[in-house]
Design a protein around this nucleic acid. Structure first.
Lengths: 249, 249
DNA sequence: CGGGCCGTTGACACAAATCAATGTCCGTGG
DNA sequence: CCACGGACATTGATTTGTGTCAACGGCCCG
């Protein structure tokens, strides 16, 4: 890997190889995918509902939310994408966007054309499988969010979301203390949890008793184990450990 | 197609080709996949949480639910699979089950080994893409359910679910009247909507004023358009129309 | 005939939404 | 440098949708 060429897609490759086994050729193929870098201002959609896209977007820096709404304008965030994530992977097989993608802070993206991804997937079964697996992990996260929203009270719900983000950001959940940057407003947290901004505020206050401190852009957790229990959190579903090497022969 | 051999997987092929374009060879490949037929009694899990599976299951008859739970035993159904669906497609790339699969009525399944699916996907890029696309539509449905649970009140929520099922069952949403069989108890509807059985009951009664009648195993809707409005339902996300033929060259 | 599952209904409790202010920070422009 | 405005956070009072508890009824099936 010392001789790998530089590519903006390194974080993305890292995300893939954390879960899937790729051959050196396949890794080179990923890093060699054509990209177009772009920067997006906070609170602006870069994919709009119903739009047909020709590319998928790797998040390099910042935070991206997938936004859906009901008919009365109620917003629901159905996914959050952090650096390394391909925020629109499914658009490769489903180019018409069924929800909007919005940068939640100043965000740097690498756009990768669908054609390039599709050709890579067709030529290298290992890549196809890795991409498919990544979609599938996203779906597992979605299912957890559903349990969260459908069957947990506001306190547990918010704690669970924060735990998930702590894990995904790799904020050392082994140690007692956890601290990470989270560039989300309380209103955005409300949109992600199906709550009200006001109630999110109250819940945050209430979670102080479980060792949570939130300042504008940072999260502080006194004791990971305690707090994870408050959020009924079990990181299993994040598939942090790389699955067995399912290589098609 | 008149000369196609008989296969229990015809319904599954139909599901795939409604959304993806497959070559005749690829279609034959799908139909030729090895299967093992099995019948499952009502309310029994055929995939348990945490289990590692070696096959995926096509629903041939009946109804399958994907069950998750919180730590207090609250159940949440995160997906429903009707005949033609591959109920566990993601297990191909993620064999460790992150939720349980339960037959909700007497259900007939066709088990297809992962190895066969993976080999087919590796040999035929069109098949890989079709499978990937199907996973992706499931994810879109999941996202809609999240909006449903997170941002709609109980009435709208239940109406939306019923509309979705009506569409997926192909219950002629063009005409005014709709009628279809739905083998779910009110408690199961509650698990799917994040509500309480008692409240589901009340909401059903309330939805009578929008032309809904539910008898034990059948749903009756007087006027589809009226009722769809009550459920804020727009079938777009079900991807009923087949997407453009994204064939990798 | 009896027992269990499911649907139905009522009274009541409570979590979260709603409404409405006020406070704090921060960038911008006078 | 200070005044202003806007975005966010915070707090209180009040309402309401949904959950909870408990009982009863119908129906099927053994």
């Amino acid at each position: 890997m010392a001789t790998q060429p530089w590519s903006p897609l390194h974080p993305f490759l890292g995300r893939l190889t954390r879960r899937s086994v790729l051959s050196p050729t396949e890794e080179r193929e990923i890093l060699g995918l054509p990209t177009r870098l772009m920067q997006v201002a906070p609170n602006t959609d870069f994919v709009r509902l119903g739009e047909t896209t020709m590319q998928a977007y790797v998040v390099l820096d910042g935070l991206v939310g997938r936004f859906d709404q009901n008919d009365c304008g109620g917003r629901q965030i159905t996914a959050l994408h952090i650096p390394g994530d391909m925020s629109d992977l499914q658009s490769v097989v489903q180019p018409r966007a069924s929800s909007a993608l919005q940068a939640m802070t100043t965000t740097t993206l690498a756009a990768v054309p669908h054609t390039a991804l599709r050709n890579a997937a067709a030529a290298f079964p290992g890549i196809a499988e890795a991409l498919w697996r990544d979609c599938s992990v996203d779906a597992a996260i979605l299912a957890q969010w559903m349990v969260n929203i459908g069957r947990r009270d506001a306190r547990t719900r918010l704690a669970h979301l924060i735990c998930e983000l702590a894990c995904r950001f790799g904020a050392a959940p082994a140690t007692g203390q956890v601290r990470f940057a989270l560039p989300m407003t309380q209103a955005q947290l409300a949109d992600a949890t199906g709550l009200t901004p006001v109630h999110v505020n109250r819940v945050i206050k209430s979670l102080k008793s479980d060792g949570l401190t939130m300042r504008p852009r940072t999260v502080w957790i006194d004791n990971w184990k305690t707090f994870a229990k408050a959020g009924e959190f079990d990181e299993e579903y994040l598939q942090t450990g790389r699955g067995p090497a399912h290589r098609s022969k």
